[in-house]
Nucleic acid binder design. Sequence first.
DNA 1: TGAGGTTACGCCTATCGTAATAATG
DNA 2: CATTATTACGATAGGCGTAACCTCA
Lengths: 91, 91
Amino acid sequence: MSLSQIQYFVAVAEEGHVGRAARGLRIAQPAVSRQIRRLEDELGTVLFVRTPRGMRLSSPGELFLKHARGILGAVSAAERDVRRVGSSGTR
Amino acid sequence: MSLSQIQYFVAVAEEGHVGRAARGLRIAQPAVSRQIRRLEDELGTVLFVRTPRGMRLSSPGELFLKHARGILGAVSAAERDVRRVGSSGTR
DNA sequence: TGAGGTTACGCCTATCGTAATAATG
DNA sequence: CATTATTACGATAGGCGTAACCTCA
């Protein structure tokens, strides 16, 4: 599991659509599709229900979304927080 | 910033020693050293004070350590939680 | 001079993008 | 048949390990 995968996952969950998610991420569709698949494989879980209209979260997917947002938020907070203090010792 | 980097960072912070951290991670020393360096570069901050005895956390490093543990904990929780529920839809 | 961290370099795996393929209303 | 996701495949980039190097008490 990587931070990119989590980021892609959240984008797809929000858009309900791999194509739009990919455009938002400024990356090609297949890259997103693959990473979602990999993530599902690693977790041993189906995160989305595939429909010809797009992707809809499964119930494990809904659960994972909450965690995913928390993780990305924690990462952003860590960066912001460290950058704010860190100017003292800038190598 | 990647999850591996965060994991390596925590290991080094706990050991105060790149070599021991690397052994614990079952990975070679330079790999750890490089990732720590990369992390510092990305954050624009020095996370460790280098001494001839090993590595000691700087004060931004101490701050980052708290965040880092939170992130890794959140990732583990997400995995565990989803795996617990996810057996319903196992592809 | 010894203990530890870092840089150089070659290899290998992972990820990307483009193009082709499949599935479904 | 149009829309969307997926697979194939070649190219690129990122990460690792071994070996050589640097630094400081």
